[in-house]
Design a protein around this nucleic acid. Structure first.
Length: 334
DNA sequence: CAAACGTGGCC
DNA sequence: TGGCCAAGTTT
């Protein structure tokens, strides 16, 4: 088993030579920029995040500007990125930091982790990237790297394996050069120790890698047993008046929370015409969406308790809509 | 602790 | 084409 001092030294030198040094959030790596990037990067690839990050920082350059923004504008900027609770949590975080810490960031790991939307990984990332201080991280990249390098068996999401991985992270994280070390871990996982076709011949840890030596690179980390995802049918209402479309704001919880959308109906309407349909696969179910139209516009369209509005097609760009709903509207609005 | 929570890219 | 994967957190 490679010694921590050796491990750190190798990660640092590899990162300097082969790591990523031009990611937008690295320059400058202020606490706010690191927070925004880390939240956006949760379960989301770097290439996808970059344009969102640039737009976000232009519109919300400071914690205060984000705290002052309307939820609709926050959601509009996040639209298309997915996992929308992240957007609401990010604004909650801004307001929390302004209210609780006078707009500053706390320094202690446990205090950082008390920020809305910030879990153990993100807290460690902020410590490492923003402060260049000790902050262990275990994300998908580190998980893959550690499971292979140390030959960790078992499904990583189980508490036993998860605990072992965090223990390794704590033990192998140095007390200096943390920014470069953390970046090196992520870069190793993202560019060499990848899920498919890892580049073991280029890996600086090839000599020490348990998985490589035992021919188990493709077996580690242990895959989680997959379960079949269910199918659901959703009914949506297309209500058009000239060049305007009727929209409702979705609830604070559940799928597409806090976005605007074609109104979703509880069941198939009896007095409507089927306009079209589309399929959409989420991480946890398949949606068979049916789009219905009414031939006559009712006078009382409002579902009680929900915000609603008529929106011009030309104005939809600045409204946060679910990606497949936006796609459907674009394909059927002319 | 399992489930909820999005979307786009890749092979 | 369909399953897998991506800088996880919350409930």
């Amino acid at each position: 088993m490679i010694q921590p001092k050796n491990f750190v030294k190798t990660v640092l030198s590899w990162q300097a030579a082969h790591g990523r040094h031009q990611l937008p959030w690295q320059h400058p790596a202020t606490p706010y920029r690191v927070l925004v990037s880390e939240i956006m990067l949760q379960q989301t690839q770097v290439a996808t995040v970059i344009p969102y990050f640039e737009r976000w920082m232009t519109r919300f350059p400071t914690l205060q500007s984000l705290a002052d923004a309307s939820e609709d504008e926050v959601m509009a900027l996040w639209q298309g990125l997915g996992y929308y609770s992240r957007a609401r949590n990010l604004q909650k975080a801004a307001r929390f930091l302004v209210d609780t810490y006078n707009g500053e960031f706390p320094q202690e790991l446990t205090d950082i982790q008390s920020i809305p939307g910030v879990g153990r990984y993100t807290a460690g990332a902020i410590k490492s990237f923003a402060y260049d201080e000790y902050g262990p991280i275990v994300d998908g990249n580190v998980r893959r790297l550690f499971c292979r390098l140390f030959g960790v068996e078992g499904v990583p999401s189980t508490s036993k394996v998860d605990k072992a991985l965090w223990q390794l992270a704590e033990d192998y994280t140095p007390n200096q050069n943390n920014r470069r070390f953390a970046q090196g871990l992520l870069d190793l996982g993202a560019t060499l120790c990848t899920a498919r076709n890892p580049k073991c011949t280029e890996c600086p840890f090839a000599d020490h890698c348990v998985a490589l030596h035992t021919g188990r690179v493709s077996e580690l980390p242990t895959a989680k047993p997959k379960k079949t995802i269910p199918k659901r049918t959703g009914h949506f209402l297309w209500l058009q008046k000239d060049s305007e479309l009727y929209l409702e704001k979705r609830p604070e919880h559940g799928i597409w929370a806090s976005l605007w959308s074609l109104p979703e109906l509880g069941e198939a309407p009896t007095n409507a015409t089927l306009k079209g349909s589309f399929q959409h696969t989420f991480s946890h179910y398949k949606l068979d969406a049916k789009i219905w139209t009414l031939t006559t516009i009712p006078n009382d369209t409002v579902a009680e308790g929900k915000a609603d509005k008529w929106a011009a097609f030309d104005d939809l760009t600045d409204i946060g809509l679910p990606a497949p709903i936006r796609k459907y509207i674009e394909q059927h609005s002319r």
